[in-house]
């Protein structure tokens, strides 16, 4: 597979994952605002904004519609859902012949729908978010059902799960930073916020199946960070990245273990054998920071091995 192609597939998948994640985060928080029965509270949005690394100016967070105009629809702002979908589609367009027709049609349809949704009324923001999430889910299903599960598919997996591991880590970090700072027991508001955190990862039902509807910060952290079976947990995501990297190494006939594989294997082991009490007793913030750093290193190592290698190194081997 061409290096450039794997690069585009990887970013296509990462951007769509980011679009889905941001859309869900915004949708869930819109919903929460209703339950909290207050008008727009800039403080309420501080956490999701920090989790998205949105970088909005005070003007833009002055009222809800202005904020959503940026977060959802402003194609010029990299954080916006629309910009992420555009970027995913643009990457797919660069490798149009490498994705299946079904995948392309779905992504193109999503892109066209968003393009047509430039000016929605306040009531429609929620639908917009749901559309994006649905489109992304459909795309993932189509990817699994219609694309050869070869090298390209593996790069798509890496893009999705690396993005997911980092996004979930950041979200946990942001939520738990304020929880730890408050240090208080769960009041009604905090309860809703913790449920919001779970819903931001579609983890509500999954969590209840494991721990029942008894919401404990420790359990929430354990579930989102270390659960082996929940597809949006950090551990699950890292496991998937590691598995995909191993497959790619096999596909290209690598003779020795590459750096990316080694880093992914090490991170996987850390998470596989991690224990939530120890992590929280130590510093969840540091732990999550380390996970994020490791993910960035995996990304860099993958680039070095498969995508941006030097010609000399390729001719020498």
């Amino acid at each position: 597979m061409l290096s450039r192609v794997s690069d585009s597939l990887y970013w296509m998948s990462r951007y769509l994952e980011r679009a889905e994640h941001n859309a869900r985060l915004i949708g869930v928080n819109l919903d929460l605002s209703l339950e909290l029965a207050t008008a727009f509270l800039p403080d309420r949005w501080a956490r999701p904004l920090a989790a998205m690394n949105a970088g909005l100016s005070p003007d833009e967070t002055a009222d809800l519609d202005a904020m959503l105009a940026v977060l959802l629809y402003d194609a010029g702002r990299p954080v916006s859902v629309r910009a992420c979908v555009n970027a995913a589609r643009e990457n797919a367009r660069q490798v149009r012949e490498q994705v299946s027709t079904e995948m392309w049609q779905d992504l193109n349809r999503l892109y066209l729908r968003l393009r047509g949704a430039a000016k929605l009324t306040s009531d429609e923001h929620g639908n917009f978010c749901r559309d994006v999430i649905e489109g992304s889910h459909l795309f993932q299903g189509l990817t699994d059902a219609t694309l050869n599960h070869g090298e390209g598919w593996q790069f798509i997996q890496i893009g999705r799960y690396l993005e997911r591991a980092m996004a979930t880590s950041r979200l946990l970090d942001v939520y738990f930073a304020s929880y730890m700072a408050d240090g208080a027991a769960l009041g009604a508001v905090e309860y809703i916020e913790q449920v919001g955190l779970l819903k931001s990862c579609t983890a509500f039902e999954g969590y209840c199946k494991v721990y029942t509807a008894d919401f404990q910060p420790r359990h929430i952290a354990e579930f989102l960070l270390l659960n082996e079976e929940f597809p949006r947990s950090v551990r699950f995501a890292v496991d998937s990245v590691q598995a995909a990297l191993a497959e790619i190494a096999r596909d290209v006939g690598a003779r020795k273990t590459g750096r990316a594989e080694r880093l992914a294997g090490r991170l996987r082991a850390t998470l596989d054998f991690g224990h939530v009490d120890e992590i929280m007793a130590d510093s969840l913030h540091d732990y999550l920071g380390d996970v994020t750093r490791q993910c960035e290193r995996i990304h860099a190592a993958m680039y070095e091995t498969y995508i941006a290698y030097t010609v000399d190194s390729a001719l020498a081997s």
Binding site: L2, D251, V252, Y306, V311, L315
Partner: peptide, 16 residues
């Protein structure tokens, strides 16, 4: 994606 070395054309792939 292409490069020429010793008058031979190559493409850059993930496998080299």
């Amino acid at each position: 994606d292409l490069l020429v070395h010793d008058n031979v054309v190559y493409m850059r792939t993930t496998a080299g």
